[in-house]
Nucleic acid binder design. Structure first.
Lengths: 329, 329
DNA sequence: TATCGCATTTCGCGGTACGAAATGGATAAG
DNA sequence: CTTATCCATTTCGTACCGCGAAATGCGATA
């Protein structure tokens, strides 16, 4: 119960990083040099750290975790759980109370967390979880087929690209695509999203497209677009969308599939490759099949991660079972 | 969007505390002396603190909050959001990464939170949220009717009492009931729980009761108990359960109602009073009606708090809208 | 190649967090 | 009522740790 970290998913320092600088056939990294966020080399492992972790912070978080586990926590109980000295525990609880994460009250006889702790978690659902589920499989896929993989989520009337393996692909056509926002109508990921999202969501988005002056989305285009989406849906579960061939870069093409949980499309995954490098009759075996396998792996990971989230029905655990005495009456 | 703290609920330092040591007709508190968790006096306001808050911790939490808001955060973006010096931001991110709350990766170009942040939140659903929703209304009710109020949740085959206003009731019969576990079958809160919980849950619990050797729960008792529960349910929404008169203390009685969200019973609320002090024909007006109002207030609060939790359907927000450029193709 | 932006690191000072020991509030037992 | 005991909280002086201005240097862009 404690080990929510799914090892197969969390592989940030294992296979995934091996894929980053281990893989000599892709890119001969020298010694694990520094990792910088603004680098696009695909590095991820910090190597040595310049700063030692701030102890006070680690302790505070450990205490906050303990209060979460205990539900209603006394100083002694936290001490038993953490082995931190009591003055430290009180100092930290006082700090957490000052910022409103924890409340104390002898009307319930202890400390408890407040709804403000949600602000420490809120951002996880969404792209963070999707990257967590996608990172390792996407890197593995790039190692295998060599072409760069992208992951994007819906953002207004476009797809926002939030993850890209171009750094470890030998044939990436550009330095980065992170943060780019390909259009819903013409991009592969946008089409994959629109084809597989729930009907009511699709209608809502189409209505937005109709009223958006930037789109030039007339009735004829809408009809054609709906036909395109219907064709995609009927392609079955291994259906994939293709980028409008009239969009740049024209010497490449992009295929995309939705990443789903239950009936929702959480994100889309894409592969881009030079048309000339993959003969039409090989696309199915060289691109679509591996992509489909990867999609499936990611969706399994997503399902696992969604369990831990409380995003779906059955939350509200009982209090941890009582050492408490049975009542007299 | 930022102010998730519902002021009417969060009233820990306002009306609720006023109810604690403000109310002179209940208890003449002298100067707001110290608050200690193990006191049962009902105090809650810290007065002066001996420790100043630990700055490092506040900063780390501020940064973690910022990363949550940004979804994918660069150092500069965090700096813009928090105005903390960049070395501090990096030091804290490094600390958060060391403990696994945050991950960095230039494959997505920034820092993001990981699923481990859930451990900082997990404990909120359940008793913490229920107390948050109940505290102020329960205290107000005690001020009004003078009798002590209790809140309990299901814990195995008993109710675990997690909140009690005896400290501010002039007529509390005992020093504390916190942590006591009155039985499901005989207690008012247990009966209220069983009467209004979903059918499948009730059947599951009854099955447990049948097989529990401690319970002596034979078929005849079960039949009678089911009849009791059915009668309670048919009492309508202001239906309340009564403690088995054969249980201690016999000179008192206890009435209880469920605290529900959608079709689930999250907890139960009770009032205890001396039988001799409230004539039978006054119980409805003096006890049941005020209790029912309080119940309704608490359930409204619970509904509000559940919204913020992601416990029900529609989570997964889109990424915060893009300053990002539109894609070329 | 040169230039720039920005993530990261250095380093020495100053204050702040540490925790053993003391305090005293509160309950439980007699 | 008094005493014993438990435990949350506070004191206080020292050691150390976090602070942040300034320096560094990687990577991107032209």
């Amino acid at each position: 119960m404690e080990g929510l970290s799914h090892p197969a998913i969390m592989a940030h320092s294992d296979e995934a990083n091996a894929a980053c600088f281990g893989a000599p056939e892709l890119r001969e990294e020298k010694s694990p040099t520094r990792c910088r966020t603004n680098s696009r080399r695909g590095l991820s492992d910090p190597g040595r750290r310049s700063y030692p972790p701030v102890e006070a912070v680690r302790r505070a978080l450990e205490i906050l975790r303990a209060v979460n586990r205990l539900r209603i926590a006394s100083v002694t109980a936290i001490h038993a759980a953490t082995h931190l000295p009591k003055p430290t525990i009180i100092r930290m609880l006082e700090t957490l109370m000052a910022d409103g994460y924890v409340a104390r009250d002898n009307m319930f006889g202890g400390y408890r967390v407040t709804c403000k702790v949600h602000e420490l978690t809120k951002g996880y659902d969404g792209i963070s979880m999707i990257i967590e589920a996608s990172r390792a499989p996407a890197i593995e896929l790039t190692r295998r087929i060599k072409w760069p993989i992208g992951i994007g989520v819906l953002d207004g009337l476009a797809i926002s690209i939030q993850f890209w393996t171009g750094a470890i692909s030998p044939w990436a056509h550009t330095s980065t695509v992170l943060g780019l926002r390909p259009a819903l109508l013409s991009s592969a990921m946008g089409r994959a999203y629109m084809a597989f999202c729930p009907d009511d969501e699709r209608e809502k988005i189409l209505a937005c497209l109709r009223t958006d002056p930037l789109q030039d989305f007339d009735l004829e285009k809408e009809t054609k677009f709906r036909q395109l989406l219907a064709r995609l849906r009927n392609g079955g579960s291994c259906g994939f969308a293709v980028r409008d061939p009239r969009t740049e870069p024209k010497q490449m093409t992009t295929l995309a599939m939705p990443l789903m949980f239950e009936d929702r499309v959480l994100a889309a995954i894409s592969v881009s490759f030079y048309k000339s490098a993959v003969p039409l009759q090989n696309i199915s075996k060289q691109i679509v099949a591996p992509l489909s396998e990867t999609r499936q792996k990611i969706e399994e990971n997503l399902a696992l991660l969604m369990r831990g989230t409380g995003i779906h029905g059955d939350a509200i655990e009982p209090v941890p079972h009582g050492l408490a005495p049975l009542a007299p009456g």
